[in-house]
């Protein structure tokens, strides 16, 4: 009798499993829009970002609402590794923080900088401590170039996610190009983006013009661009928070162009 009851239960369990599968298939069209939305807006649900947080995935899933504070703790943990110059720990927790809370621009900004500026030095130091007395300059350059590219990729993704703060991201990209990759043309392009995007950094326009004129020898192009940029402030197309227009005019005068005293912005 006991065996019989057990077999009945097993049969019921199998049928229940079948019912759940059929119900799941039947109801999948109802939940599809919500599932697709989660897939598109939650980076934790993308295959490429899963590997970085799979170990913490259970926590992520269970404490669905605690993502912001978990991301902050991950960031703190990443900072501890940063202080100890541990690349692996720093990168892992950084990626976890970014996956848990991609809405925090600071993670992207600092993450990009740390990746581009700090990590290559740790890598070089680790390799040199591993037996080689001094790494070849070409290898060092390759390592720095690789990390700089990763930092740029991180910052570019951050700029896409935070269009209102894109200027900060492009400015940092320019710094990486200038100081690590030693590519002034590319840096100038990033400064131009920082000067022209939504909520721009006006001083990025000066950096762009200076790079064009002094580093790339394209002074005439720089002057024309800066004049057009200053013109936008004169016409009121851009908000002048201070003395931006006057400063731009001053720079243009220094460059030997007499900017006519046009109508003052209302």
């Amino acid at each position: 009798m006991g065996v019989s009851l057990k077999s009945v239960f097993v049969c019921r369990a199998v049928v229940a499993g079948g019912v759940l599968v059929v119900a799941g298939w039947g109801l999948s069209w109802v939940g599809r829009p919500a599932g697709e939305w989660q897939g598109a807006h939650q980076p934790a649900f993308r295959a490429e970002s899963l590997e970085g947080v799979l170990g913490q995935g259970a926590l992520l899933g269970v404490f669905g609402g605690f993502r912001a504070i978990m991301a902050d703790f991950a960031w703190l943990r990443s900072y501890v590794s940063w202080e100890r110059c541990e690349r692996a720990g720093c990168e892992t927790f950084m990626r976890m923080a970014l996956t848990l809370d991609p809405g925090n621009a600071v993670f992207w900004l600092d993450g990009g900088y740390i990746t581009a500026f700090d990590m290559p030095h740790w890598e070089v130091r680790t390799r040199e401590a591993g037996g080689r007395l001094k790494l070849d300059a070409v290898v060092v350059r390759q390592i720095k170039g690789e990390y700089a590219r990763r930092g740029l990729a991180l910052l570019s993704t951050g700029a896409e996610r935070h269009p209102a703060r894109a200027a900060e991201f492009w400015e940092r990209c320019a710094m990486i190009c200038l100081n690590v990759l030693k590519e002034p043309e590319r840096a100038a392009e990033f400064y131009r983006r920082a000067a022209e995007c939504e909520n721009p950094k006006w001083y990025a326009s000066l950096a762009y013009a200076n790079l064009l004129a002094l580093e790339l020898g394209r002074k005439e192009e720089a002057r024309r661009w800066l004049e057009a940029y200053a013109e936008k402030f004169r016409r009121g197309e851009r908000r002048d928070t201070g003395r931006i227009r006057e400063l731009l005019d001053e720079v243009l005068r220094e460059w030997g162009t007499a900017t006519p005293p046009r109508t003052v912005r209302p």
């Binding site: 609402g65 605690f66 960031w75 621009a105 600071v106």
Partner: peptide, 25 residues
């Protein structure tokens, strides 16, 4: 009162996220 743990994100988002987490947990 725990927003000191927030590193530059939206403050309201942090507070709301904390409450949502408590609600579900």
């Amino acid at each position: 009162y725990l927003r000191a743990f927030d590193f530059g994100g939206s403050e309201l988002k942090f507070v709301a996220d904390f409450g949502f987490g408590g609600m579900f947990l």
